[in-house]
Design a protein around this nucleic acid. Structure first.
Lengths: 217, 217, 217, 217
DNA sequence: TATGAATGAGAATTCATTCAT
DNA sequence: TATGAATGAATTCTCATTCAT
């Protein structure tokens, strides 16, 4: 009853190890998102994870390694979500609307991702540049957006000459800025930007802008 | 162009409170913009300013007081620049183009302002909320944009029903995000986003989007 | 109307100087009493006095000089109060009771004096030892107590062989300790030691003890 | 007598948490007693203890936590010493004399305790009030004194109507004040109050006062 | 794999004091 | 006599990281 087979022991250890890693990543995601790269504390992460802080060094090498792991996992998360999106069988206009809504919802649901990106940009993207894992940065959305724009042009509903990269950045910018800067914006405008009504208005405005721009007549 | 007058140099050593204050604010603006609120160091600011760090406490009370002063001065700077903008005597479409260009140029020329805003948002805008100096947040641009939209609508060139606040935030978002997230974006796209050519393309894209959206026909 | 005679000017200046000195001493007395010698702040004193802190150096040379001045003035205060006490025309027992009451009241009314003495003792009385102003320490009470004890012995009402110094210290100790240690004592006993009732009980207890000890029969 | 065993020295370098804690408490007791709460230095404590100062924060949270720990241990020390005192099998008068002598000796041997209490009172007993560990403050002496007074009264040797709390405070006051204020008192009187002779005289005076007060006839 | 103990460099902040006017 | 500006040395406290087990 006390002894277990060697294989089981190894298994359990492996599973615990993985659980510990995930607990650390979860905790670190919150810590980094709330406090920024510099503001986050190793002790804070360990405490949130309920784990000895020495393990952060064991698993991730240090604070920067941990941050990179968190960031990479966040990118992986959005990549995964993107794959669930299917624009091909939608009409061009509907596809654009769907894309905007997807990005908007994802940013709303994952403000921590925006915060992590801010941190990464503050330090000149040194974590991403250090490791050349370009894969995690490649979004299929860009290609799909290109397809949709082309399809719309061919069908005569969209204007031509639209750079998918520029448009993609514009969509991201409109959602990102609204959410990431909500505190200063709501202080400026004296409005709650995050009420359900405000959210709905924002989404319909964005959709209107981009479709208004793209659609011919 | 680089040299400063002897008088300036000499005066820096004299007991000129205002000059010392400004030197600290200049230094702190750079330090906070480059390293963020948490990453900035009191020693770093003092060294950049060539001033005893004790004076930071003497004049600003502490790191947070200094940050607020820096932020407030940055807001004042953009407010001042805005006043030089004159949209009234322009046709609606030209006024919109001018507005977009103004914001774009200002953000390009003052990336430190974007960084400061990111820092302020990261901490929930606690500095702005602590002092209720709402004045510094009030931009005349919003009113002017409202006027332009209305003028365009009356003249029959712009669509109606456009919320100036939403549009203002959209314009800001498109410029802000491109500049603030340039490091991760350029890593993602493998493009230099800041080359003169890229800048020009970005501006013309943005103008196209918003005018394409607003203009009827 | 604008010009005043030179003499008046000098007078006014002198009077203002004295007022400033007194304001500083008043402020410092409170600051030192509340926070102790080490806990007291030069800035705190200047602020309480509503005076530039440079003047502390001008008038008193520094923190230690200020503390000594405060202490000396406090001693002078109690010496002055003592002179108003007249034990000679009282019967021995009444004189003792009067003496105890006087000390008790003075300590109650001047807890800052106790605190200052504690500070001075903590640093080995270095301020008093540095200047040999023994005069300020000489209390007439000791002589008067000696007289009363002798008178009582001769009249056959008091026991003999009582050392006035020991008795004086005992009386001081009983009042001093109760007041100086009131915070820990009241925490220990869970009683408010400073209510009027508690104060009255304390005084009558002390009087009882010392008269019970001294009186024959 | 002075030398410590090799084992002790070696162990101080090992990772013995309890030993480190005690070393810090010993060092801090001296530092706080000599310099007061405000005058004591974290660096001073660490240096005296031969320990990294970071550990003060690790074990005690900060200066105040350390002070409380020191104070609590000091209270525990006197509580322990008290338990060795046995008054029950002594005659009332002898018991009182024994009690006075015990307190006197304890204060003489532990002047640091008096100093710590002064510090605690200076700050309004905030450390004790913050934690509600009333137990450490409860002395058995008070009950025992009550018993002795009652016994004496019943046996007809002591006067009645004596409040044990008042008497206890009086005894404490007489010993405490003499020792705690020895520097100013000896400066005042120009006598060495701590010579063996002076100590003996003080003890006999105190005993005489309280027995003179209590005993009938 | 996991952990409590320990550390050195550095962080913000404080403080008595002096300078220049 | 008075004052705002300036300073250097401390002082408390923090932090990422390593050690020993």
């Amino acid at each position: 009853m006390v002894s277990t087979s060697l294989a089981d022991d190894a298994d359990l250890r492996t599973r615990d190890a993985e659980r510990t890693r995930q607990a650390l990543l979860d905790a670190a995601t919150v810590e980094f998102a709330e406090l920024g790269l510099e503001g986050a504390r190793i002790d804070g992460v360990a405490e949130r994870a309920g784990v000895n802080k020495r393990l952060i060094y064991y698993y991730f090498g240090g604070k920067d390694g941990l941050f990179y792991a968190v960031l990479a996992r966040s990118y992986a998360g959005i990549r995964e979500a993107e794959h669930a999106l299917n624009l091909i069988h939608l009409e061009p206009a509907a596809a654009i609307a769907r894309l905007i809504e997807f990005i908007w919802r994802y940013h709303l649901d994952h403000p921590e991702f925006l915060s992590l990106l801010n941190s990464e940009n503050l330090c000149g993207a040194r974590h991403l540049k250090a490791r050349q894992e370009r894969r995690i940065l490649d979004s299929p959305l860009l290609d799909w957006l290109g397809d949709v724009l082309e399809r719309g042009r061919v069908e005569g509903v969209f204007r031509g000459g639209v750079d998918p990269v520029q448009l993609y950045v514009s969509i991201l910018g409109q959602t990102y800025f609204y959410i990431s800067n909500r505190h200063t914006l709501s202080t400026s405008f004296g409005r709650d930007l995050m009420s359900p009504k405000a959210q709905a208005e924002r989404l319909s405005h964005m959709t209107e802008v981009f479709l208004g721009y793209l659609l011919i007549n």
